Amino acid sequence: MTFSFARVGALCLRYLYLLSSSWPRLLELVYWPILNLMTWGFLQTYAMNTSNSALFAAGALVSGLLLWEVLFRGQLGFSISFLEEIWSRNLGNLLMSPLRPIEFVAALMVMSLLRLMVGLLPTVVLAIAFFGFDLARLGIGLVAFFALLIITGWAVALLVAGLILRHGLGAESLAWTILFVFWPLCCVYYPLAVLPWWLKPIALALPPTYVFEGMRTVLAEGVLRLDYLAAAAILNMIWFAVASWGFVFLLNKARAAGALLSSGE
């Protein structure tokens, strides 16, 4: 058979239709380069202007990385357990059973914690062995930081689950990528002061921003800022309430559209 440019064009047209009809796929194309530029650009700005070498010596970058993993892996563990029901086409069966949505969500939270523990504990051991990470520097604040970040991760995962229910596997990539939208805004590796003024109000609306700012305060000054913890807790309650409402709303929309039985690989 001869090579057909028409067949190639037809197949490309099919993929273009698929791409243009799915906003998560379009979003994925543009935000990775932008997020990498913003994150490492702000870190470079901070490194060039800071004179606080003691903060780096205290392990601020490693601490920030480990706390980010708590946030990211907590959200991802929730989402993957949910997606496994989608991939196996079992979600419809679960939701037609006596299982209540709140019970389903509670089970996903438990699995998120288990997955996080399995992945994080060896990472902390290696951080101590290779980089001299001192877990005791964070003190009792570590427990608060962990709890606040995992709740934020669950709120994001809950909303992602609702979007997948409503829009199908076209929104599946959000489970792996949506949290990175907040990566440069949460000030994981640099303080809030590095951000331009027009981004600061957005960053201050994110609970993790207060966690990472509080982490750096503990490392630099040995002080646990309770006002940061309180702000993060209040924002988490708002975030989780909105995410819960969004999940229930999107679940009802998916039921009305008959999307629960048509989802799967």
Rank of each mutant, 00 (worst) to 15 (best):
V223M: 06
R100K: 13
S173L: 15
M215D: 12
G92F: 07
A155W: 07
L169P: 01
A243P: 08
L113P: 08
F247C: 02
R7K: 15
W154I: 06
V218G: 06
L121D: 00
K253W: 08
R216C: 04
T217Q: 14
A6S: 13
Q75H: 14
G168T: 02
S173F: 12
S81L: 04
A205M: 11
G74C: 08
F72K: 02
A129C: 02
M109A: 03
S112V: 08
A47V: 12
I34K: 03
V223T: 11
W32Q: 13
L66Y: 06
L174S: 07
E265R: 15
A175H: 06
S20F: 15
G41F: 10
H167Y: 15
R14W: 04
L99C: 04
N236L: 00
G214K: 10
N49A: 14
L192N: 02
G264N: 05
T39C: 01
G162N: 07
F5Y: 15
S20A: 15
G222L: 00
R115I: 12
L250G: 10
L13F: 05
E69D: 15
L142F: 12
R7C: 13
L226C: 07
I34T: 00
G258N: 02
W197F: 12
Q44L: 15
Y190A: 05
S112L: 09
E28V: 03
G132A: 07
E213W: 13
A10D: 12
A161V: 06
V242P: 01
L174F: 00
G119E: 04
A6C: 08
F180P: 05
W198N: 05
L108P: 06
L120W: 15
L113D: 01
G64N: 03
Y46H: 13
L138P: 10
W245D: 05
A54K: 14
F42M: 07
R25W: 11
S244V: 02
T152I: 10
F5E: 12
P122V: 08
P207C: 00
V110Y: 04
F104G: 07
L55N: 01
M38I: 11
G59K: 06
Y17A: 14
F146A: 09
A127C: 05
V188S: 13
S51G: 13
A231H: 13
L65R: 10
E69P: 08
N252W: 04
L235E: 10
L121Y: 11
V143R: 03
